[in-house]
Every structure is written in C-alpha cells, then in structure tokens.
Design a binder for these strands. Structure first.
Lengths: 252, 252
DNA sequence: CGAATAGTGTCTTTCAGACAGTATGAC
DNA sequence: GTCATACTGTCTGAAAGACACTATTCG
C-alpha cells in the first residue's frame, strides 16, 4: 500500500513536491459594474497579450502566490489595479473550469463581481485605464468577448439583477450619502423597469435598510433628505421580491 | 517589451509551457446531504492519507485533467465514486482559496453540494463506503474536521437551509413519487421548524411545483396522494420566503 | 365505534402595487 | 402665483400563517 501510512505528516510534507501532479491554470476574472450617464456600465479590457490578443475581455489574471493570501485578495488587487478603488462591494459569483475554455489548457477561473461608485473611481488620480474602457451594458451585450467571457458576463449580470430584486445591494453603486430618489433611479436602471415611489420608500425605510441622516441635498427644486446605508443590513434579504412588471393580457 | 506582440497566437501557444508559472493546488470538495432516520445526514470520510491522516473530512480530491472535461464533471465523478448515485441534485456553493488552508501550499477548492435520496443510495450494490460514513448533522456540527472543512460544511448547510425557504429544492432528497406530508416533513427537518399543513400544500400546489399523479400510497391509515416534482419549475423561486418562527415577546 | 393520518375552509396578517394627494423651494 | 421635485395617505391584492374543521381508512 501507499508509503504515506508509515510516514508522519511532517515527513510527508517534507517530501511533498507540489508540482508532482498536473494542475489546471487558475485565474480570477472580474465583472466590475458602475453607473454613469444614467446607464449601467461594465469595465472591459482589450487584451494586450496572447492568447486572444486584441479581443475585449473581463479584467483578470493569475493569482500571485507570493503576495495574495486569499482568492478574495487577488480579486481586490485586480480591482484596485484597474480602478484605484479599494473598498468596493465584492462577491464571488461562480467558478468555471473545463478543458476547452482556454487554448493553453485545462483552466479554471473564479468570477467575482464588483460594484463601485463612479464618482469614487473618477476621484482616483491614478485611473490610468490602460487598454480599459467603461462600456454601456447594452453595447457590451452585443460585443464578442474573449474566451467564455460572454458567459461570465451574463452570469454576473444575472446575479446583479436577481439580488437587486431582494436586497439593498445597489447602494454600493452610490456614494455614502444619497437620496431615496437617487437610489430608486439606480434600481430602475438595473431592473429596466419603473418602480412605484411610495412602495420603494416604504420598503427601504421600514426594513431599516437605510437610515435618515438629517442632512439634505438640493438637486432640483425641493431639497431631498440624505440617507446612509445601514451596515447592519449588509446581508438583509427583503421578505418579498420586487415584482416583475405586469404583462398586460392582450386586448382584442 | 514582451515578445508576444510579434508572435501569432499559434506561435505563442506552440511555445507555451503550462508549468512556466506557479499554480495553486486545485481540488473539488463535496457536501453530500441525505435524510435517513428522520434526520439530516452528511457523508464524511476518514482521511486515509497525509496530510491530516485519520481526520474526518468532506469527500473530494483533485481534478483528473485527462478524464474530467469540466469542474462539474469532477464533482459528479467524486459523488458517483462515493455513493454510486449518478443523478443527484448538484450545485456549486463557493470556491475557497488561500495560502493557509492546506499545509501543502496555496490551495483552492471548489465546493459543491449534493442532495440524494437515501433509498437510491441504498439500492446501489456497490455502496462500499470505504472509510465513509453518514453522520447526523447534529453530530457533525460538534466534530472537528480536517483543513477548513468546518467552514465548508457550514457554507453548504447555510445554502441548503436558505434555498429551502424559497425553492422546492428538498424534493431532491425524496424518490420520484412522494406524498405532500413526506415533503413537508423533509422541510421541517431541514428548517428545524414546524410548518402549517394547509399553507404548505397551498404553496406547493398553487405554484405548480408539484403535480398530482393520481396514484396513492398507504403509509398509515388514510391513503395519501402521490405527487411528482414538476421539472419545469427546476429554477422556480416562490414569490415569498417561508417565514421564520415568530419569537414571542417575553411576557412578565 | 375510536384512533390516526390525509386533507379543506376560511379568517388574519404582511407587504408590494397603484395612484391620487400634499409639501417645499426656485423662479 | 407656476413648475418641478420631494414626499404621504390609503386602497387593493397576493400569498403566508393560524387553526378549526371534515374525510378516509384500519382495527
């Protein structure tokens, strides 16, 4: 039988060569969303190197085993390198692995999605954006992307839309202080559906997802209350989802 | 600058050595749930080899780059090897990667969770279960597990409990035909909470999640209708979650 | 018949949708 | 004052909870 049974764990590890066996390529890819010009945008990069040189892709890359202590740290690093933003909303969507997605061989990618406030991004001095561009989602949907990034982008967008229906996630697309009208507007952009004002405010306030600050902000005519996200409800799930728009039964 | 800019993609791939860079260890781990003896159980394995020889762990292992064409295929293979069951419910929970979870080095694991009907498992001739054991979840919660498998198991259990609140997922723990009383019982075991019979039946039937078969089955006294899961509602999400049990305001 | 399990009737509660109404400030 | 934006009152409706009720079978 195997020799390992006669060894201590210490001896085993001393003899262990991590590269004794085949391992797949392992990468982290990022779907970074933000809202600007009243539209949902996604950060895409035009690949500088082979494979798929010149193709548009989600930003991403290899784990740096020396400096990244966790997968999430790799995601944070990638996001910071591209946008200069260091405190985004960041969540793992899924991990996709197969033998065909990358011509270099069996490859696995952990897909993360991030939401950032576009103003926070713009305030970064160092937003160099080499080869990067914010693409309107409606345009991104019709572009051809490198590898299986079309699938990855669709998965990330699905996650965003679904969670928008039952959580307060979209606050992460706004600055710390915001008005409820602004927040509702963000929801409407993501869901591509208009929402009732009274129902929206009641939902947010009664669940305690947002807290009134007492400050107000003048945008148009009447000044609006500024709210702040209630960090206690970071994982809060509303007991009911926002409904899909009613599809009118066709009249003859 | 990099040579790659002057090469064609074909030349690039011809020169590419997958092992030119460091890659983390990559594994797949399985949280396989089933219900027997009116309790939720999890399949654990006592590790035969180093590291952590002799410790209890979730079943799992390396991707076989030769025979597994996708990560999901690896998960299916692992599940079949351990249980002989080939058509379980199988879903990815999360992927955990860091430099400390495995003494062999930077390691990444894709965690899947599976639900199987215990009878289907028992009918397999080949359920050898080398080193494997079905452990009652209440016992498993107090056991010490190898690596970070305590965390993995908690994540998988969370996912099961959450999805039980808003989907018909637990049908996968029953045979093809089942009574609504049996299904409700499974829900109550998972949620550790009793449910109202009328509300439960109304919810399942009116949403079309289950279909009456016309057949019936005698368990106790009055025979019960047998239902079948409606495959159309595989991704169905109920518009409202099952509520948490009311916590009575303490009376003096 | 009684016991046990299957299944229903129906009232209450919760929370989203609809939509008309009022409030505040710039001009 | 008007206009635009902020915000509220209140009715309806969908679906969950509570719980008492009836139905079917075995012995």
């Amino acid at each position: 039988m195997s020799m390992t049974e006669k060894m201590s764990e210490k001896e085993f590890l001393a003899n262990y060569q991590a590269r004794d066996f085949d391992a797949p390529l392992m990468t982290v890819d990022m779907a970074i969303f933000s809202i600007t010009q009243n539209r949902l945008h996604i950060l895409l990069i035009q690949r500088a190197n082979h494979p798929q040189q010149g193709e548009w892709a989600l930003p991403g890359g290899f784990i740096d085993l020396k400096t990244d202590s966790t997968l999430l740290a790799t995601a944070h690093r990638k996001l910071f390198e591209k946008t200069g933003v260091s405190s985004p909303y960041l969540e793992q969507v899924s991990t996709i692995g197969n033998s065909t997605r990358d011509p270099r061989g069996w490859s696995v990618t952990a897909l993360y999605f991030a939401l950032i406030d576009f103003h926070a991004f713009q305030q970064q001095e160092s937003h160099r954006l080499e080869h990067c561009e914010w693409i309107d989602m409606s345009k991104a949907k019709s572009m051809s992307l490198a590898f299986d990034h079309r699938l990855l982008l669709d998965m990330a967008l699905d996650r965003l839309i679904n969670k928008t229906r039952y959580t307060a996630l979209p606050v992460s697309l706004l600055p710390e202080l915001f008005t409820l009208t602004e927040l509702q507007h963000i929801y409407e952009i993501i869901l591509e559906q208009s929402l009732d004002k009274k129902a929206f405010r009641r939902r947010m306030i009664e669940a305690g997802a947002v807290i009134e600050t007492g400050q107000s902000k003048i945008v148009g005519k009447r000044p609006a209350q500024l709210y702040r996200f209630n960090q206690d409800s970071f994982d809060f799930i509303f007991p009911r989802s926002l409904e899909l728009p009613r599809t009118q039964p066709e009249a003859d």
